[in-house]
Design a binder for these strands. Structure first.
Length: 332
DNA sequence: CGGCAGGCGGTTA
DNA sequence: TAACCGCCTGCC
């Protein structure tokens, strides 16, 4: 990474409520990868969520058209008051979108830094299971992601695994998205598919450059054949049809409207609401949650889980879901 | 080789 | 409305 062109933005955060690994590895986002220490070239290989030893506090990724390296310095100590710890969140941003005049407010919003997670944890701790789950994922925060990106991401996520979801999103962006200009990158274009050659070519592009997700307008004009190199499987048609709907009607904020999109059912609509629309009460029910609900609360019927979550977790259902997820993951 | 992965669409009772 | 099945793909 070329330090000279990076814009540095810092925030003071409470490390108890802010852990990059918890934020980026919980399955809410798919465009961040762990990178090794200061000053080194970022490594963006297929990590499958595994960290190189000792380098779990820096990530590189893209959000809101901004490519950035994000790190947290853990070397901090208590302030004079209240015994609260502090850490510095450092964002080294490599580019700025054309019309952006306030990158700082973008990241402040993206990481939802005005929300007091300590208070949320306290509220959720009224439930004994959540109280026990929190230590395993205490630094989670629900990011405020772009609704369209969230929609695309979670349509792709169905019946899929995280490494491939990440790869699909990256390849889709490389194939059809706008290249992000960060000053020193190579140029590359591909058109038709001699399959293997195209695949290799695209891998090279994706490895060296950053691309934004294609817009609804771009995707709506594409065909399943156009998207074949990305190897989305049956999800390609879902994406195109959804893009066409969004172009015609806009992306609704209503759950019922989201649910009616092609390739979007209850789980994906809940994820869009939670991760893309800031609806913290939204409680996505996936296979992991079903296991948790059975193991910890003895609820076996999926049809009863939403109501249970609403009663038990209320306005913070989505955040409770994240703590439970980490709890379950740790316990295996 | 079959099983499976952070669901959904479509079809049946 | 609940239960079932097939699905692209990649990895084990």
């Amino acid at each position: 990474m070329t330090d000279s062109i990076a814009k540095k933005i810092t925030f003071t955060v409470d490390p108890e409520d802010f852990v990059l690994r918890h934020i980026f590895e919980c399955g809410q986002c798919f465009r961040w990868e762990p990178v090794s220490g200061m000053g080194e070239e970022p490594f963006r290989g297929e990590m499958n969520g595994v960290f190189p030893s000792g380098t779990d506090n820096a990530y590189i990724g893209i959000a809101g058209g901004r490519v950035a390296r994000v790190s947290l310095d853990a070397s901090c100590d208590a302030g004079a008051d209240a015994g609260g710890k502090e850490a510095t969140l450092l964002i080294e941003q490599l580019n700025s979108p054309e019309e952006s005049n306030d990158d700082r407010s973008f990241w402040n919003n993206y990481f939802d830094l005005d929300t007091d997670y300590g208070a949320i944890k306290k509220s959720l701790s009224k439930d004994e299971m959540i109280r026990r789950a929190i230590p395993f994922g205490h630094g989670i925060r629900i990011l405020r992601q772009d609704p369209w990106e969230t929609t695309v991401s979670f349509i792709i996520s169905q019946n899929n695994n995280i490494p491939r979801i990440k790869r699909n999103i990256r390849d889709l962006s490389a194939l059809a998205g706008e290249r992000v200009s960060i000053g020193s990158s190579t140029n590359g274009q591909t058109e038709d598919s001699a399959d293997q050659a195209h695949k290799d070519n695209m891998k090279n592009i994706a490895a060296n450059d950053w691309y934004e997700l294609p817009s609804p307008e771009t995707l709506a004009r594409m065909t399943v054949d156009d998207l074949a190199p990305v190897r989305l499987g049956y999800r390609a048609r879902y994406l195109i049809e959804t893009a066409q709907c969004v172009c015609e009607r806009g992306l609704s904020v209503l759950y019922e409207d989201l649910d009616s999109l092609c390739g979007v059912g209850p789980k994906v609509a809940s994820c869009i609401s939670l991760f893309g629309l800031g609806r913290r009460e939204s409680f996505p029910i996936d296979v992991w949650v079903k296991r948790v609900m059975k193991e910890l609360y003895g609820i076996e019927k999926p049809s009863e889980m939403a109501a249970f979550a609403e009663e038990t977790f209320g306005e913070y259902g989505g955040i409770a879901q994240q703590y439970l997820f980490y709890y379950m993951r740790e316990l295996g």
